[in-house]
Design a protein around this nucleic acid. Structure first.
Lengths: 241, 241
DNA sequence: TCGCATCCCTGGTGTAGACCAGACCAAGAC
DNA sequence: GTCTTGGTCTGGTCTACACCAGGGATGCGA
């Protein structure tokens, strides 16, 4: 036939992007189902999916397991070099933050962690895991390692709100240097489940080592952010004093 | 039949990951073609592709347009807060760096740029674009905007090697603060072509604003890195003096 | 009114096959 | 020796279809 014109995934991308940019679809709005999109745009589900995945890679839309596709809300701005708490800076940006503790444990140190943290091979660490989110949507996973030898009794403290506050107030520790290590990777199946993301979802891994005035490692922190929810801002000031 | 056992993309991922981790496939090695992989592992090309895309998302492998899939070489460590040059820090890590200028132009400022850079609406900027790579593989695109009003004659300088050096030596400017803005996104088709990546490839966007001692913006820099080639390291020192 | 079973819709993941276009190489023409 | 041509390999993209499993609303029964 002469009218043989295949609809490409790029056309679908463009169509959906327009809907979002023109405000026909607002943040958190649900997109039509894959089957409906493919019918309406006269293509197949596979092609529609290709397009949806492209927009997902851009961070424009996200999917919630078997519930559908949604328009991504605006990103959270985060400066990992400052020791402000999540709850505060997220609220300051107009979101409603939440934090869920997944587990707290006293663990033996591993050789990898000992090297990373410059700790002795027989130290015990306190490991704290949590998920944090905004407006009911999980945005990142966090694992914090603290050295009991430097912070006696830390295991029994309530770390629910902010570890930084406990360190500065209860232990009178100052943060002298912060080392950041930022990589893009993919979530494991377990991590993805906790963030309601598909396995292999693109994430931003922020590893942070905070030292006190003596140069000892106070805190080793690993964060795994949904890539579509994060905007990293770092301000470096080279001026003295 | 009873032997009806479908091979999942996860099994393919695991198989290939093992090959890479055990060293059967070395960095820069070519993987078997999609058709061969799907035959050998008794599955379809679509499933094999699903697996390859997963490994691509993790940064373990990459594809070169219609040439095949390859094992990703190790990442480049980069500290965007320091003003070391690409050529130097990449060479120091054992790579052979290269840099290609794509264009240099004197342009009128846009309102968006003026706002970003705190510049007057009638200033002219010098826009410099280049691709940079290591060991023959392009890893990032860069666009630099410089203010002619602050840096008279900058257009005629050779900026081939390092803009930082020219600013500090020829103009005696000091870098007081650096603002970093880091986001994960997707490459446009044009950007992707320059990096030999597929359209929509996940990239790390690093936007950097550097100011001089007076607080004036010296340089506005946008970098688009292949996500599989970059490891960001930032060291923040809160100690005075 | 509350709790639970059911059913429909949604995305998740396979199968099978087709055609296109760029990269690459080797054989042939000049 | 160099340029051109054509065949073959590769990924890129599409059609068409099938079945699975979780989410969520609905409705029935206690």
């Amino acid at each position: 036939m002469s009218g043989r014109k295949t609809v490409t995934s790029l056309q679908v991308v463009e169509y959906l992007r327009n809907c979002i940019e023109h405000g026909d679809l607002q943040p958190e709005d649900k997109l039509p189902s894959e089957r409906v999109i493919s019918e309406q745009l006269q293509t197949t589900r596979v092609t529609a999916r290709e397009a949806l995945k492209q927009l997902e890679a851009e961070g424009a839309i996200y999917r919630s397991n078997r519930r559908g596709w949604f328009v991504t809300p605006r990103r959270i701005n985060y400066d990992p070099s400052r020791s402000t708490f999540f709850m505060d800076y997220v609220a300051a940006q107009g979101f409603t933050p939440y934090s869920t503790e997944l587990g707290k444990a006293r663990i033996g140190i591993t050789s990898r962690l000992a090297r990373k943290m410059g700790a002795a091979s027989d130290e015990t660490l306190v490991k704290l895991e949590r998920v944090r989110g905004a407006n009911g949507r999980a945005v990142y996973l966090e694992t914090i390692y603290l050295r009991e030898s430097l912070l006696p009794g830390i295991y029994d403290k309530s770390l629910e709100r902010s570890v930084s506050t406990v360190l500065t107030h209860d232990y009178e520790q100052a943060f002298s240097t912060v080392e950041l290590d930022i990589t893009v990777g993919a979530l494991t199946a377990e991590q993805a489940a906790l963030l309601d993301a598909p396995a292999g979802y693109t994430c931003i891994c922020v590893h942070r080592i905070t030292r006190n005035a003596d140069g000892d490692v106070l805190e080793y922190d690993r964060e795994y952010w949904r890539h579509d929810s994060l905007n990293l801002n770092v301000l470096i000031d080279n001026r003295k004093g």
